[in-house]
Simulated assay, not measured.
Amino acid sequence: MSKNILITGTSRGIGKALSEGFLEKHRVFGCSRSESDIKHNNYKHFYLDVCDEAKVVDMVRSIKREFGSIDVLINNAGVASMNHLLTTSLGSAKKLINLNFLSTFLFTREVGKVMSRQSHGKIVNFSSIAAPLNLPGEAIYAATKAAIENFTKTSAKELSKFNINVNAVGISPTMTNLIKAVPKNKINELLQKQIVQNFCEFDDIKNVVEFLIDNQSKMITGQVIYLGGV
């Protein structure tokens, strides 16, 4: 059954791959601070800053007004960073908190309003295996992902009465632009701590997301699934 899916951060990387993967069966609404080169009749792009409250509200209301419902929200937008705590600037910390956590909060709040009125919905947030592994150099980044995990579990309880499921996927290192600036030895160190010591592929992410947004996963909520295992 076709769904209306909103995915944040769709101009490249995981967000773009998920959008392209879902377009054959579903309608996808994407957004980012840059234009998208996805060309498909079932795709609509919104150019915005995912931390701009007014624009997020406008985007969600526009989708609801034109298409009637939002069945799935995938909070993908975010940024990765590895830096020693003592050399992390306040500006860098704020950027990580805003892009990784506050954008997830904003979209969950606004889309949650739509889903509560239609009495159904699936929300998938993206965390990272960096959260449980506590690797040196990832204090702020891992903290934002830990916040997302706690937010996922609590919002699942708050939204359950509206028939809304909220889950999170803890992604392991994936070959995207986000990790190009991370030293190779740090990536290898991370991989060695996983149970499955391989890079994550786009299909790995898509497969678990498809499971979480499927109607048959109605009993799965408030969970964090770590790809690769920790």
Results as ranks from 00 to 15, higher is better:
residue 1 M to R: 11
residue 1 M to Y: 08
residue 3 K to T: 06
residue 9 G to K: 03
residue 12 R to P: 11
residue 13 G to N: 14
residue 17 A to R: 15
residue 19 S to Y: 02
residue 20 E to D: 09
residue 20 E to G: 09
residue 21 G to R: 13
residue 21 G to S: 10
residue 29 F to P: 12
residue 31 C to H: 15
residue 31 C to D: 15
residue 35 E to M: 15
residue 46 F to S: 12
residue 50 V to W: 06
residue 51 C to P: 06
residue 52 D to A: 15
residue 52 D to F: 08
residue 55 K to V: 10
residue 56 V to H: 04
residue 56 V to M: 01
residue 57 V to M: 04
residue 58 D to E: 11
residue 58 D to H: 09
residue 64 K to F: 10
residue 69 S to C: 14
residue 72 V to C: 05
residue 72 V to R: 01
residue 74 I to E: 02
residue 76 N to A: 15
residue 84 H to F: 03
residue 86 L to S: 12
residue 87 T to H: 11
residue 90 L to M: 13
residue 92 S to R: 10
residue 97 I to A: 08
residue 98 N to F: 12
residue 100 N to C: 01
residue 103 S to W: 03
residue 103 S to Q: 03
residue 106 L to M: 00
residue 112 G to I: 02
residue 112 G to W: 04
residue 117 R to H: 07
residue 120 H to K: 13
residue 123 I to P: 03
residue 130 A to D: 13
residue 133 L to P: 05
residue 137 G to P: 05
residue 143 A to G: 08
residue 143 A to S: 13
residue 145 K to Y: 13
residue 154 T to W: 13
residue 158 E to I: 05
residue 162 F to H: 10
residue 167 N to I: 01
residue 168 A to Y: 10
residue 168 A to E: 06
residue 170 G to S: 14
residue 172 S to H: 03
residue 174 T to K: 09
residue 175 M to Y: 11
residue 177 N to T: 12
residue 177 N to Q: 14
residue 179 I to W: 09
residue 183 P to M: 02
residue 185 N to I: 14
residue 185 N to Q: 11
residue 192 Q to I: 08
residue 195 I to A: 00
residue 196 V to D: 00
residue 202 F to L: 12
residue 203 D to A: 13
residue 204 D to E: 08
residue 205 I to R: 07
residue 219 M to G: 09
